[in-house]
Nucleic acid binder design. Structure first.
Length: 103
DNA sequence: GAACTGACTGTAA
DNA sequence: ATTACAGCCAGTT
């Protein structure tokens, strides 16, 4: 298959609950620096069955890349909050998750 | 192989 | 804060 995509999927799967990252970071984790868009491609074309925490992947600065109010946008925001991540005005923050982890 | 495309990113106005 | 634009790079036309 495509080893690059598998590396990316693998990297995403390794993101701990309550933690967030960016497209560029995922690419770097997968050993593909500068391939942020490849991460996007991998997410877009990910198989149905594999339950990846795709919602923990955000754009640079921790912001949701989908158009605000779009279906995907709401979905991602919901999942993030479900992870204990604070989402404010399209941007996700890890600040409160520290507290969550402590309890 | 050229042209386009995009769940990206950083810089500039 | 918002918008435009130019790099970016693999995949698809």
């Amino acid at each position: 298959m495509n080893p690059a995509l598998e590396a990316i999927w693998n990297a995403i799967a390794s993101i701990p609950r309550g933690q967030i990252t960016t497209y560029g970071d995922v690419a770097r984790m997968a050993g593909l620096p500068g391939h942020a868009r490849q991460t996007a491609y991998a997410l877009r074309n990910m198989p149905e069955g594999m339950n990846l925490p795709w919602h923990r992947v955000l754009g640079a600065g921790g912001k949701i890349v989908f158009p605000k109010g779009s279906k995907h946008y709401r979905e991602q925001a919901r999942r993030l909050r479900s992870d204990g991540v604070v989402v404010k005005d399209g941007k996700a923050s890890r600040e409160l998750m520290v507290n969550v982890d402590q309890y």
